[in-house]
Design a protein around this nucleic acid. Structure first.
Length: 478
RNA sequence: GGCGACGUGGCCGAGUGGCUAGGCAGAGGUCUGCAAAACCUCGUACAGCGGUUCGAUUCCGCUCGUCGCCUCCA
């Protein structure tokens, strides 16, 4: 399998540090507000990556942190007049609720910065001990220019950094490039005791400390949004490697930005769409399909038209499963259609899906492969329905393959999506009424029955085997 | 100013030195009382200009345009 490594700027053959095991660390949110759909992209992508690696047989450990102490949190808490700790706890819970609603499994570990203060202080102490960091005024700063590899991830050169020119006020740093690993607390701010007095972790250090704690040095994949490359990930590398002298993470994967009106979605721009608002209106799988429809490194435009397209795709999958399962439920006495095209399509799809995923997790290509299988299943069920007979084993295998591949992509289906077997009796009675009316060509009555069925959330579809019911659209609107 | 990415048919979006991506939308057809779904048919697209090549959308250069990072940001 090939994965693009930000560090080397090329696709590289992936092999794990430890045979059969993969350790992944993803930078999660700083919890000072509700997360928006842009924040959800890395969450979804790395869940899909983990699913795929597991399907390959790897034992995957996915660690995604929650940064619950930070300047932003303190600032926001100050504005709202609540305690910073309380604010962080509330938004951390909201983050878990919102991401849980996506329907994907949780990361294996979700460490919080505030629960790893002693590890963080240890790391700071080591940095000071080696001379890579220094204390001043109760804060500890990293000496950027002393670290030879600085800039290797982002391609930034210290001499050419724009903010070289910007000296910040109130910071007694040796160099404007230096960044805080430990910040002295001002009165009223959350703080912990440390060798340098009461303070809190700087941004970056918590991720270094927690990734090393849970995955160890030289772990396999470190990821996050593209915008974290500099300075966040660059600084994480500096902190870790300044202490250990060995490679911090072997591979770096960065997910492209979600844009609205061609501009990056971010809290500072103010063009955000909250994940929880999205989920009030759409099925979570619409968002997942929207994400996986393009390559993870590409920027992606968040728009109603693009979401509607994803919703249509979800419908297409739903219809395919419904139809296949309808055929599978029936005994059928007719001769089954020629199964060879479906058999071939299943083999081709599995192969193409693998090839696309092996190539830097090309989910868009993998999705195209899946649609090929949908088409073949539809053709088969179409013919089977007309012939009144089917090879249940073959169709079942094809259907299960579809379910499995979509599952790897994070899109799961079950019969509840289209109504299941146990339909309410009133609905079946309405169907009967409509059939009776149709037979006597009383179409006004028939259509009235259909409207009632529609009002109950079901749609009627006439087939050679008679009328069937399917649960209506999965998305909630737009 | 520095670093990087990208510009594909009506739209979204993969990909490749010569061979159908796929989806959505649209047109026609099959089926249906009408629908819905599904199936069949239909679109010779690769920003522009040069170059390399038997041949480039795919490689190289330039131009134009868009975006990201260099400051908090997934």
């Amino acid at each position: 399998m090939k994965l693009y490594n930000t560090l080397t700027r090329k696709k590289e053959e992936f092999f794990p540090r430890d045979e059969g095991k993969v350790g992944i660390y993803v930078c999660g949110p700083t919890v000072y507000g509700f997360i928006h759909v842009g924040n959800a992209r890395p969450y979804v992508f790395f869940a899909v990556l983990a699913r795929y690696l597991r399907s390959m047989g790897y034992d995957v450990k996915l660690v995604e942190n929650i940064t619950d102490v930070d300047d932003k949190i303190i600032e926001r808490a100050g504005k709202e007049g609540v305690a910073a700790g309380r604010l962080a706890t509330d938004y951390a819970r909201a983050y878990v609720d919102d991401t849980r609603a996506l329907g994907l499994e949780r990361p294996d570990v979700e460490p919080k910065a505030t629960e790893h203060i002693s590890e963080i202080i240890d790391l700071c102490r080591l940095l000071v001990g080696t001379g890579m960091a220094y204390e001043t005024g109760g804060s500890v700063y990293f000496r950027v220019e002393k670290f030879p590899g600085y800039g290797k991830l982002s391609g930034q050169k210290t001499g050419q950094m724009k903010h070289c020119e910007l000296a910040r006020e109130g910071e007694a740093k040796e160099s404007p490039l230096d960044f805080a690993v430990w910040k002295a607390a001002k009165p009223g701010e959350p703080s912990w005791e440390s060798p340098w007095g009461p303070g809190r972790p700087g941004w970056h250090i918590e991720c270094t400390a927690m990734s090393l704690k849970y995955l160890g040095e030289g772990f396999d994949i470190h990821g996050g949004g593209r915008d974290l490359v500099f300075p966040h990930h660059e600084n994480e590398i500096a902190q870790a490697e300044a202490v250990s002298g060995t490679e911090f993470a072997r591979g770096w994967m960065h997910v492209g930005m979600i844009t609205t009106k061609e501009e990056k979605m971010s809290k500072s721009v103010g063009n955000i769409f909250l994940l929880r608002e999205f989920l009030k209106r759409y099925d979570p799988r619409v968002l997942i399909l929207f994400f996986i429809g393009s390559h993870y490194r590409s920027p992606l435009e968040f728009s109603a038209a693009n979401l509607d397209e994803a919703a249509s795709q979800l419908e297409r999958f739903k219809n395919c499963f419904w139809k296949a399962d309808s055929v599978l439920i029936e005994a059928g006495t007719g001769a089954p259609p020629d199964g060879r095209p479906l058999e071939e399509a299943a083999a081709t799809t599995a192969e193409q899906f693998e090839a696309e995923m092996q190539d830097d997790i090309n989910t868009a290509g993998a999705l195209a492969a899946v649609f090929g299988l949908v088409k073949s299943i539809n053709e088969y069920t179409e013919q089977a329905s007309a012939a009144g007979g089917a090879d249940h084993g073959l169709l079942g295998r094809a259907r299960d393959l579809l379910e499995r591949l979509l599952g790897i992509l994070g899109v799961e289906f079950n019969e509840a999506d289209y109504g299941g077997k146990a339909l309410p009796k009133e609905l079946l009675e309405l169907v009967e009424q409509r059939e009776t009316a149709r037979r006597s060509k009383d179409y006004a009555v028939a259509d009235a029955a259909r409207d009632k069925i529609a009002a109950a959330g079901y749609e009627i579809r006439d087939t050679p085997q008679g009328p069937k019911l399917i649960k209506r659209t999965l998305d909630f609107g737009s």
